[in-house]
């Protein structure tokens, strides 16, 4: 039994499906985030001993790391949908990519903001060109580049495809950019492995952090699908199915 994926590729078919999924993802996200916060704030130690002693401000990790992971994951999703759109020429994939970009940019900004606020107490400055934060900053420029290019072109068809190509070129360049930032001096390249990789974090902190990540992940599904439905409506306005959807929903 081969599933005809292209059946779902038509915006008309996907619109109602997305509509049903949004509330479900929204509720799951809310639940996960609340559990993660409660766990992180009340059930864990106030201060961290061990190799990297930190005071209460370490709790910013519950937001900073999930946001950073989500920003990188959403860029992969953005580049993935762009590639699918260019190869299969399906309009829905381009709409999906356009729907992902703003949420990804927001998470990147959040990662930078929370990273700076965490850096101040622990390193003494808001910004010290730490390789991870600098890579986030450049990822932020890639998102802004995608959004700016897409909005600068009026013809939606060319805008989709040009921004998609930019996302793919960006994806190819990301490892090279991250290499050049994490290891500016190839002679002694100690900085490549992160100072505190997730493995070394205490379990009782790792669990809430992962729950928060899942919460933000399910939140981004809901946000992206909501934006996608608006994009589908604007772009398919002159199709027949939109008029009866409008009639039904405008009155509801």
């Amino acid at each position: 039994m081969t599933i005809n994926w292209f059946k779902f590729a038509s915006p008309a078919a996907f619109y109602p499906i997305a509509g049903r999924l949004i509330p479900w993802f929204g509720r799951v996200a809310l639940a996960l985030v609340l559990i993660g916060l409660f766990w992180g704030f009340f059930l864990t130690a106030d201060q961290l001993g061990g190799s990297n002693p930190q005071k209460e401000y370490y709790r910013i990790i519950y937001v900073h790391v999930p946001a950073a992971w989500m920003s990188m994951w959403l860029y992969l999703v953005l580049a993935g949908w762009s590639a699918i759109g260019l190869v299969f020429n399906t309009r829905l994939s381009f709409m999906m990519a356009k729907a992902v970009a703003p949420t990804g940019a927001i998470f990147t900004f959040l990662a930078l903001w929370t990273g700076a606020l965490w850096g101040r107490p622990s390193w003494g400055t808001y910004w010290d060109w730490d390789p991870r934060l600098t890579s986030e900053l450049l990822l932020f420029f890639l998102y802004i580049g995608y959004i700016a290019l897409h909005s600068a072109i009026d013809d939606t068809r060319r805008a989709d495809r040009a921004a998609a190509l930019l996302a793919i070129v960006g994806l190819v360049m990301v490892p090279v950019i991250f290499l050049s930032i994490n290891c500016p001096d190839p002679n002694q390249c100690a900085a490549l492995h992160q100072r505190s990789d997730p493995g070394s974090i205490h379990l009782s902190i790792l669990i809430p952090m992962l729950t928060m990540t899942l919460g933000l992940w399910s939140y981004s599904f809901a946000a992206v699908f909501a934006r996608l439905r608006t994009i589908i409506l604007t772009r398919e306005a002159d199709h027949a199915w939109v008029s009866d959807v409008i009639a039904k929903e405008a009155t509801a």
Partner: peptide
């Protein structure tokens, strides 16, 4: 938050 309320 142990004096770090502003940051947290």
């Amino acid at each position: 938050q142990g004096g770090y309320a502003g940051y947290v």
